[in-house]
C-alpha cells in the first residue's frame, strides 16, 4: 500500500467499489457503515480524488447500450524511438478513448501502440482507424483492429475482504 492510502481508505474503496449507495445522503450512509463521521468520508474521498486514486466519481456506461456498438482495439507496430511522439498524436484524436504503449510479444504479437476507437458501426470504426493509419504514415510497419464481439465480464476493481 502506498503512504497516502491507509486502512480506512481501503475500507472506503471496498464499500464503494460496487457503487455509491443510491440514497439521498450516500456519504452519511457510508459513514454509518464504516463507523466514521460523514465529514471524514467526504474529506477522504476528496483527498483520493485529488491524489488520483479516485479517477472520477460518476456513471460508468455500458458502451453498447449508449450506441457504441462497435468497439475496436487498434494496434500498431511503430518504431520504439518514435512511439511517444506518435502515441501523443494518436491520443489527441477526438475519437480515440484510450492510447497506450505496451510491450510487443514476439513472435505472436508485433504491435506496441494500442488505441481504442469506439463507433456506431464497424465501418465507422474502420474509417477512424484509416485516419490513424494516415496520421502514422509509412513509419507504421503493420496494424490490426480487434473488434469486441462480447462483453464476458465488466465488474471493475474488486478488493478482497
Amino acid at each position: 500500500m502506498s503512504e497516502s492510502f491507509d486502512a480506512v481508505d481501503r475500507r472506503l474503496v471496498q464499500a464503494t467499489q460496487a457503487g455509491l449507495p443510491l440514497v439521498s445522503r450516500p456519504y452519511h450512509s457510508l459513514a454509518e457503515q464504516l463507523g466514521i463521521t460523514p465529514a471524514e468520508v467526504m474529506a477522504r474521498l476528496a483527498r483520493l480524488l485529488e491524489s488520483g486514486i479516485v479517477r472520477r466519481i460518476g456513471a460508468v456506461p455500458n458502451h453498447y447500450a449508449i450506441g457504441y456498438t462497435a468497439n475496436g482495439m487498434s494496434v500498431w507496430d511503430v518504431p520504439d524511438e518514435r512511439i511517444d511522439e506518435l502515441g501523443e498524436r494518436v491520443g489527441a484524436l477526438d475519437f480515440v478513448t484510450h492510447a497506450y504503449h505496451r510491450p510487443r510479444r514476439l513472435p505472436e504479437w508485433p504491435y506496441n501502440l494500442f488505441a481504442m476507437v469506439h463507433g456506431g458501426s464497424r465501418a465507422e470504426v474502420l474509417a477512424k482507424v484509416a485516419a490513424i493509419a494516415e496520421l502514422l504514415g509509412p513509419v507504421c510497419r503493420a496494424h490490426d483492429v480487434l473488434f469486441s464481439t462480447r462483453i464476458l465480464k465488466k465488474t471493475g476493481l474488486r478488493l478482497g475482504a
Partner: peptide, 12 residues
C-alpha cells in the same frame, strides 16, 4: 455498469 467512484489501482 456502475455508478460511483472509479479507482486507479496503480495509485494504491
Amino acid at each position: 455498469t456502475r455508478f460511483g467512484p472509479m479507482f486507479q489501482v496503480e495509485r494504491m
